[in-house]
Simulated assay, not measured.
Amino acid sequence: MLKSSSPFTGQSALLRRLLIGLGVLVVVALLAGLTARLAGGGHRAPIAANSPSVPAVSTPSAAPSPRTGADPSAGPAASTAPVVAPPPHTSDPIAFAKAFTAALWTYDTRAATQPQQLAGLREWLTGESQYADPDALAAQVPDPTLWDRMRDNGQFAVGEVAEAHLPAAFQKGIGNDPTQLTIAYIYAVTVTGKQTISWRDGGRGAEDRAITMAVQCRAGRDCALATIATTVYP
């Protein structure tokens, strides 16, 4: 079981006061049972075996789809394509959150190992260690044992983003005290969409999904992921 080392739990009292005080993100604590939930939810393994006023530059709306025609027995070296889509060059937290979510919900166990998938996603984290929460990110990816089980079934998924917005409480809090945003330049963003999962022998299923994350967008830099909340905020 992974315990969070989130900045919201002590590494940054100012950031904790910002987000908790706004009523947007709760303390990122123990992500209990998330791997089990992934097995029965977002990363199921078949049992057969309103934007803020910050400038933005172009960014992909979704991560590239996995190789749907790939041989399930082929290893990670069979493709030279990136395991995970790279972070976009954007200063817009909404655009960043959409791109990250699509990358997070898209995977191909036939073409990547669990460590490769996680390493690709970690490229999206902020380089400011006091705000980066790698444990919260790791909790979104099936553990190596589950990943291998999914790979045995030739499982892959494609994430589709429908909408992203700043939670209402976050917008209200920043409106009441805009100076709070200058502490760490971190925005709360909720993204909704769909994940379509496929596996060997034509198995296929889809489900609606939602996630809330903290995105850091400092002036003059590309946005980056800070952490992922345990609760989805409207």
Rank of each mutant, 00 (worst) to 15 (best):
P76R: 03
A77P: 00
P64K: 07
A78D: 07
A36Y: 11
H43V: 07
A77W: 00
T68R: 13
N50H: 10
V24T: 15
A74G: 06
G75Q: 05
L30V: 13
A63R: 11
A77V: 03
G42K: 11
S51H: 02
L30Q: 11
A78S: 15
L38C: 07
G23Q: 06
V24L: 03
S73I: 00
A36T: 15
P52C: 06
G23N: 11
T68L: 12
V27N: 05
G40R: 14
N50T: 12
S53Q: 14
P52V: 09
N50D: 11
P66D: 10
P52R: 09
A63Q: 08
R44F: 12
A56H: 02
A48S: 03
P64A: 11
P52Y: 07
H43R: 15
G75F: 01
S65Q: 08
L25P: 00
G75C: 04
D71V: 04
T35E: 13
V57H: 04
T68I: 12
A49E: 01
L31T: 08
V57R: 11
A48C: 01
R67C: 04
S61T: 12
L25S: 02
S58H: 07
G33K: 08
V57L: 07
P66N: 09
S65H: 05
H43Y: 14
A81K: 14
A36F: 11
S58K: 05
L38V: 05
T80K: 06
P72N: 07
G33T: 11
S51N: 04
I47N: 05
S53L: 14
V27K: 05
T68H: 08
S51A: 15
A49S: 03
P64M: 10
S61K: 08
A49L: 06
S61H: 01
V57W: 02
L25A: 12
A29Q: 13
S51G: 03
A45Q: 06
S61G: 12
I47P: 04
A39D: 12
A74T: 00
L25Y: 02
S61V: 09
P64V: 08
S79H: 01
A81Y: 05
P60Y: 12
A77K: 05
L25F: 05
V28Y: 00
A74K: 02
P72M: 05
A78W: 02
S53D: 14
S79W: 00
A77M: 02
L34Y: 14
P66K: 10
T35C: 08
N50E: 07
S79C: 02
R44L: 15
A56T: 03
A48I: 05
S58N: 12
L38H: 14
L25T: 03
A32L: 13
I47D: 10
G42P: 10
A63G: 09
H43S: 12
